[in-house]
Design a protein around this nucleic acid. Structure first.
Lengths: 172, 172
DNA sequence: ACTGAAAACCAAGATTT
DNA sequence: AAATCTTGGTTTTCAGT
């Protein structure tokens, strides 16, 4: 059903823990294959993954644990908040004067903010907000975000309908 | 460590499968609690979830299966593509003339598109793109998306750095 | 709720770099 | 030496009745 991965363990694919320049771990082909398996099904048994990538069950488990500990991946349930019910959701484009990253860090600390990216283009930051209702959303955007020193302007895009949500890169 | 959920099984919270007006299943408190557990850890054992929500292991298992089958949630490994390596990523704001949803549907069918939302505001659609490299990204945006009949204009926001990615609504 | 089967876990021991 | 993989034995979880 899912593709076998040739996992000859040699040469250039043996380092799963070396640090690259930006502090993020370099992943070898085997770890990528494991992640791929788990992108298809986050609860796939370690033994099945092992068979697919050519490793023992225990080895897979150890690698998965490490990937989780390192924060390279998370295994989670994902839903569409709007579908699940009671929420208002929006993307907010933000323009900043001064240090963009420090603003991004503040946003990251806000519980209503699910997603923060620094971008190139006419916004410096995109932040996705999940709220209880309109009042809550208004509060977060107008009172809390726009009030941050350094935030020059914001533009909001309230979600009407989520059409697609995938986590399948590498598996297309 | 994680909060116990009072799951008295009565009256208005026993229907996890009834269909609401828009065709999405109405979730009861117990199912929400289960999802919450799995948002913290997608591989949490059914028994542990059962203890937290006040259900037997088997009951949890059945509910989880149903939630997955219904497409209410998915349990998957989530990564930051940029961290994992070889990708260029961008959010594209799109303006449409005519039927917005049909354009959204086309985007949904494109493998490079991970995320599609219809929005209110100065964009009709927001689409997140994951690509191999700059050339690929350029191709997708300029050749494929802008070429769609009905697409009036697009604006791109290339990702520089992902700062936050959470799936914790309800658990803050 | 019970039961056989599968999966997860653990602790050494072996292998590779 | 350090890290990674394997093996064998044990406990826990799972799936079906």
């Amino acid at each position: 059903m899912h593709s076998e991965v040739v996992a000859s363990r040699s040469a250039d694919q043996r380092d799963s823990s070396r640090e690259s320049r930006n502090g993020t771990p370099t992943l070898d082909a085997v770890s990528l294959a494991i992640i791929q398996q788990l992108q298809e099904d986050g609860r796939r048994p370690y033994a099945a993954i092992g068979k697919a990538v050519g490793l023992s069950e225990a080895a897979v488990r150890q690698r998965v644990q490490k990937l989780l500990d390192q924060g390279v991946m998370q295994i989670v349930a994902v839903t569409d908040p709007l579908t699940v019910g009671f929420r208002r959701q929006a993307m907010v484009g933000i323009n900043v004067e001064g240090d963009v990253e420090s603003i991004a860090d503040v946003l990251t600390g806000m519980s209503e903010v699910e997603y923060v990216v620094m971008t190139a283009g006419s916004f410096d930051i995109l932040a996705e907000i999940v709220c209880e209702d309109d009042d809550h959303l208004l509060d977060v955007i107008n009172k809390r975000i726009r009030a941050l020193p350094g935030v020059r302007s914001t533009e909001s895009f309230v979600y009407l309908k989520l059409k697609k949500q995938t986590y399948m890169w590498g598996t297309r």
